[in-house]
């Protein structure tokens, strides 16, 4: 948990992510955000990038410190242009995320509530200026296991993540590799909504950066009955989590404001042998 005392020394979320880092020939720099550590080196118009999972959480993120990398790293090599600038940016994962609430929630008919969930973000490394960046590499900020949402013949491949449904985003520590997603869930059916898994289609979401949080635009889910598809609305504007939010990533897959897809599920056993 990052205490309020430590906050003065740390870069804010915005300072951490919205920085363009210049490189000199042969120079190597280190980033250490959460448990992920990566080096970037510039050599004769080529970029060398190496990621490492440290397993230890670093409370004070390092963002582009000049540091000599260890020799045993496995580098990815990119032939690039003359631009010796790098932008390290958060992006949302490329698949929907199935959130498993730590305690199942029941919502009465015609009732609803606003919750906040935490969505792990990926690290995106781009070359160039903020106006015309070129993607070099994306890397998950945390290991996410894969899961299947829906029927075995027509469901979809998703990431799985266990998160509580918070009533206030400040209830949870503000980790640097998590984005807060506001969810408005409404039971539009005549019986109780009792779900164990909820599918959040993050490739359709925008990402915002504020002084304290990374967050997504607001999602409204209306439950229409067991096995039925839910009505999903993506709000166009920035969420009302904190002031001065700035959009930093467009949706990976743009969609209309409203879509209809299955979003709630009970855990089913397919072990019929």
């Amino acid at each position: 948990m990052r205490g309020s005392g430590a906050r003065e020394e740390e870069p804010t979320t915005r300072e951490l992510w919205e920085k363009i880092t210049s490189f000199e020939e042969g120079q190597a720099r280190l980033w250490h955000i959460g448990t992920i550590r990566f080096w970037i080196r510039r050599v004769t118009e080529e970029w060398f990038i190496a990621f490492e999972e440290t397993g230890e959480y670093r409370a004070h993120p390092a963002a582009g410190e000049e540091r000599e990398p260890p020799p045993e790293l496995k580098w990815n090599r990119y032939v690039a242009g003359k631009t010796a600038k790098i932008i390290v940016h958060p992006v949302l994962p490329d698949r929907p995320i199935v959130i498993k609430p730590t305690s199942p929630v029941k919502i009465l008919p015609d009732r609803g509530s606003r919750y906040f969930i935490h969505v792990p973000v990926w690290i995106s490394i781009m070359e160039g200026s903020s106006k015309n960046p070129l993607l070099l590499q994306e890397h998950p900020g945390d290991f996410l296991s894969s899961t299947w949402f829906g029927d075995p013949d027509d469901g979809e491949l998703c990431f799985s993540f266990t998160s509580d449904l918070y009533k206030n985003p400040a209830e949870r520590e503000d980790l640097p590799l998590m984005a807060v997603c506001p969810l408005n869930i409404r039971n539009g059916f005549t019986s109780i909504l009792d779900f164990q898994r909820i599918c959040v289609r993050v490739p359709h979401l925008q990402l915002y950066s504020g002084p304290r949080y990374l967050c997504t635009n607001e999602v409204e889910l209306i439950y229409r009955g067991a096995g039925q598809q839910s009505h999903i609305t993506f709000r166009e504007s920035a969420p009302t989590i904190e002031p001065d939010l700035k959009r930093i990533a467009l949706p990976r897959i743009p969609v209309n404001r409203n879509i209809i897809k299955k979003s709630f599920e009970y855990i089913k056993s397919l072990s019929l042998y």
Partner: peptide
């Protein structure tokens, strides 16, 4: 099964 990143979490693994 749960630790293998290629194995799906759902549907759950079957053990008989």
């Amino acid at each position: 099964a749960h630790e293998n990143p290629l194995c799906l979490e759902e549907p759950e693994p079957l053990l008989v």
